[in-house]
């Protein structure tokens, strides 16, 4: 569906993107993930046509659109702050693209109302000014406006970043439902790993203008290809050389102590009855953080601080200073 081939974007002397190669399949929810300034929005704006690359091509369904103007690309976009036109009503905002395309009034009316219904906006809400809507409703208007012209692709640039945590989760779910309902190819930009993991079919992790890894959420999380991805996605323990060596010694599995080894928090087992194939250590609880759904512990294991989590199932949880048995499966280590 979308092919970015060897894209390079420069702003003066600064190279913002280099060697970007991406293939987004039809109907896929594809996410560009990375920290601020990594090039994810630049890549999105290259697809939508706001930025023209210095090198490389952008193709949609085999057609080269690298030099096609923004307004001729038929790619819908939802902006970070939604960019709803403040002087227009909700109805006028949604109808804007249709008016530009000179669709007749009856059709505009039908399509606007139809689209409003699909995104759960009432007829009364259509007549309101956009400033009178809540954050969630505004997001729905922005999506309706982007979709009403039947674009082939929809691009969303961090549309949830300005919302509070609870609304963000709620709208994330709505967004996923809507994408499934419309079945439209979606390119999504976010710096929020949780958003990326929960929403996406495929994720491209960006860093300093390059792509570090492309894969499914599970591949990105469980089999991070680079140290950057491993650190950027989720919380993680970095193991010191002695500790890594001890894991190797106990399990007989060759672990190169000269390399950086990491293990995810949920792969640290505390007081587990099953320890076969794992390295086992004695340690003490150094501290804990209560998160409601789970508890995060800091353990001191022979000078190595390990973070781990335990689901909050109502049992009495571990106290500071309490002695524990920690076990780690060497297959869970990510080594770089």
């Amino acid at each position: 569906m979308i092919y970015l081939n060897d894209i390079e974007v420069r702003f003066g002397d600064f190279t913002a993107l280099k060697d970007i190669n991406i293939h987004v399949k039809e109907g896929e929810f594809y996410t560009f993930l990375g920290p601020s300034g990594c090039g994810k929005t630049t890549t999105l704006r290259t697809i939508t046509g706001f930025i023209e690359p210095a090198k490389g091509t952008v193709k949609v369904k085999g057609k080269d659109i690298t030099h096609v103007p923004v307004e001729k690309r038929n790619i819908g976009m939802v902006f970070q702050n939604y960019a709803l036109f403040p002087t227009m009503s909700v109805y006028e905002n949604i109808a804007f693209g249709l008016k530009v395309k000179k669709v007749n009034k009856t059709d505009i009316d039908r399509r606007v109302k139809e689209m409003a219904g699909k995104v759960d906006l009432t007829e009364q809400q259509l007549m309101r000014k956009v400033a009178e809507l809540s954050g969630g409703q505004q997001q729905r208007v922005a999506i309706a406006r982007a979709l009403v012209t039947n674009p082939e692709i929809i691009c969303l640039d961090e549309p949830l970043s300005n919302l509070d945590a609870k609304l963000r989760v709620q709208l994330r779910e709505e967004l996923k439902e809507m994408q499934a309902k419309f079945g439209i190819t979606t390119v999504y930009v976010t710096h929020d790993q949780e958003e990326a993991l929960t929403l996406s079919d495929c994720i491209a992790v960006f860093n300093k203008g390059f792509i570090e890894q492309i894969g499914t959420p599970d591949e990105i999380y469980s089999a991070s290809k680079t140290e950057f991805v491993c650190n950027f996605i989720g919380d993680i323990n970095k193991l010191n050389a002695n500790f890594t060596r001890e894991i190797g010694a106990q399990t007989g599995k060759g672990v190169d102590a000269g390399k950086n080894a990491y293990v995810r928090l949920e792969r640290i087992h505390v007081n587990s009855t099953r320890t076969d194939g794992r390295a086992v250590f004695k340690g003490k609880v150094a501290g804990s953080e209560y998160f409601g759904l789970y508890i995060k512990y800091q353990l001191d294991v022979n000078g190595q601080v390990l973070k781990c989590i335990d689901k909050n199932d109502g049992r009495q949880y571990l106290r500071k200073g309490e002695e524990v048995e920690v076990s780690i499966d060497p297959r869970d280590l990510m080594v770089y």
Binding site: T48, F50, E71, K72, M77, F85, G97
Partner: peptide
């Protein structure tokens, strides 16, 4: 950008 993206000259 939004207007141009929606086809506005």
């Amino acid at each position: 950008d939004a207007s141009r993206n929606l086809g506005g000259g």
